[in-house]
Design a protein around this nucleic acid. Structure first.
Lengths: 355, 355
DNA sequence: AGGTTTAAAGCAAACGTTTGCCAAAAATCG
DNA sequence: CGATTTTTGGCAAACGTTTGCTTTAAACCT
């Protein structure tokens, strides 16, 4: 009638440290020390223990260890929302770099969320306060906060990526968006362009603010007015980059004084925008120069190949992990701001204006 | 001289269940039951306990729970190698879908690896045997195996994705690659094509075998010989899709009897191949039809827009998680094979041959 | 050789939960 | 109203490690 325990009792939990100790003929504590503290135990017994452990195929239980030590070896990553943005691989690539560095340091990566609704935020906080994670890397977004709990109070080492929160006390790894866009714009100016279209990301977004500022700075440096650039978009998330480009194409069509150069703030926008422009008979770069942001590999194979601002993803991930590990070692440190330099890749989508 | 304990003693571990119990005026065990087993405790005391927990901002410690219960709530994902493949977003997208489903079910996703070298495999096995994870989803690759340990013996529910291992006892979620490619090829034949170029993935790879078989089946069904298709590539991983395309462009140039249609097994290949072809003066689809595989959004914005075989990523992730959850509930079940149907998206890159 | 220092190994108490079992209280019944 | 069943709450023993402290053994000195 009731559940049959005998049948379900298969739960093989594998060999324990006690088994290893028995086989090696030593105490459990000695095994523990032999496996962790190298010098704390005689070399000869250590060898014996190692052999026993290997023979049994022993793997220490991470949760027991974590509970006892009071620390886990899991790092969580907090995403702004989606993991992927069209053609842009920035997030997955940085993720990859982060994970590789973490594993090398003996840590595991856990993806805390993929949305940022209340449920997700609660979940993130549970991970933090529940002792599941030892540290966090947060991507381009603000700290989750629900009810009376905020990640800021979790007493957890946190690194912010792509979003400068060093003011708020978090060490941050950011790219020099503003400067990179400024340089790209300056290059367009040098080529002779005087009227620009700027394809914006979500209004108020940190990256968008920075990038737009870069445009303005370049204009001012060249003695031009901010009126030389018209903004398109601003109402859509980067996730909908392709849509932004399509929308921008309509905006372009409606403009009286056509710009001769376009500054797109993601490759997706640039790609869909360019596609539409070509369909309406324009030639790139003869009629219109385009430069975009992200450095997606696919840009090299567009026609014409797209100039884009490449983000050094590998470097960013490594920097973030290095900071995080440091923060976990030393209790408190002054928050630092690490700037990774993006670089403009010049391709055929940029040229001097026709006239 | 020695480390000052007082200074580092900041380790606030947050409120414990004992604190909640004290505040609510009940025993610890009652708190535990109130928080987990809904019916096991009086509604009135439950409310009192809930209030106390909320007031203290209590979050249960996941590791302590995991240790006691003997199960974690972490699912690991085992990748074939890289997380991203150029423009193809299949892996990140499926990952996203998986993670969303998992979180909904109260589980967490951990990325076990990004490479498949020995260190990584060892790491994966440690996660499995060390009790860190409760289940695994393995992506398009075989089970890790190092020394005397193999994932197969870890007594862990495992689901294989994109790679049929139902013979080996693992429930699998796969796409109908062969059929999808067969249909795409059949469509090309219907348009009048008789000579084909097939851009291969890594030689012997499951997907490549399936996809190539699809081509052959279509040819045979149309009464044509396998000689109608020439293979290019086979020596590079999908990660280097763009390179495969470039290499294929050279192969194409060297061919005496030019094919009129190309079947690429990833969007990356198709994109870089098409780019090169256009540079050499060919027109797509007038001179050459192209169809590819993956369904990357960017295909819609190529010029011309690329026909591609779309993989239903969302559906795949959900199916995998459903299977995994089922496997974790019921001890053993017959392994199932779930086939998700890819679908061909027709765009302008396919047309009738010129002559 | 006896005493003192140093190294090696063991004992047992944590870590924060869950849960089997039992006691108390409440509800139900005759 | 006493006897029986059902609910509710508490005690204490796990789960598999790590680690402070103690004991034992070894090594070193005079």
């Amino acid at each position: 009638m009731s559940k049959n325990n005998d049948m379900l009792g298969e739960e093989q939990s594998g060999p324990l440290m006690a088994d290893v100790a028995r086989l090696a003929g030593v105490a459990i504590s000695t095994v523990s020390r032999a496996l962790a503290n190298p010098g704390r135990v005689n070399e000869k017994t250590r060898a014996k223990i190692d052999a026993a452990a290997r023979q049994l195929g022993y793997t220490p239980n991470a949760m027991a260890r974590g509970l006892r030590v009071g620390k886990s070896n899991v790092i969580m990553i907090i995403l702004p929302g989606s993991l992927y943005y069209g053609a842009s691989q920035v997030i997955p690539q940085v993720l990859q770099s982060i994970n590789r560095s973490l594993i090398q340091g003996g840590y595991n990566l856990m993806i805390a969320n993929l949305d940022r609704d209340e449920t997700s935020e609660r979940h993130i906080l549970d991970l933090a306060f529940g002792g599941t994670v030892r540290g966090a890397i947060i991507f381009s977004s603000k700290l989750p906060e629900v009810d009376r709990r905020s990640l800021a109070n979790a007493n957890l080492p946190i690194i912010s990526m792509l979003f400068d929160m060093s003011d708020a006390g978090l060490s941050s790894v950011v790219t020099n968006d503003r400067e990179a866009v400024r340089d790209a714009t300056a290059e367009l100016i040098r080529l002779g362009h005087r009227r620009f279209l700027y394809l914006a990301g979500p209004e108020g977004n940190y990256h968008d603010v920075e990038r737009y500022s870069g445009v303005i700075e370049a204009l001012e440096a060249a003695g031009m007015s901010g009126a030389a650039v018209v903004r398109s978009g601003g109402n859509l998330d980067y996730q909908h980059g392709f849509d932004i480009g399509l929308q921008a194409a309509e905006d372009f069509a409606a403009l009286a004084a056509k710009p001769t150069a376009v500054i797109a703030t993601s490759d997706d926008m640039a790609i869909s925008f360019m596609s539409r422009m070509q369909q309406t008979g324009l030639t790139i770069p003869a009629d219109l120069s385009i430069v975009s942001f992200d450095g997606s590999p696919v840009c090299a194979f567009c026609s014409p190949p797209l100039s884009t601002i490449e983000q050094p993803v590998e470097e960013m991930g490594q920097a973030a992990v290095a900071l995080l590990l440091a923060a976990m070692e030393q209790a408190e440190k002054e928050p630092t701001r690490t700037v990774i330099r993006s670089k403009l890749i010049l391709r055929e989508s940029m040229a001097a204006p026709k006239s």
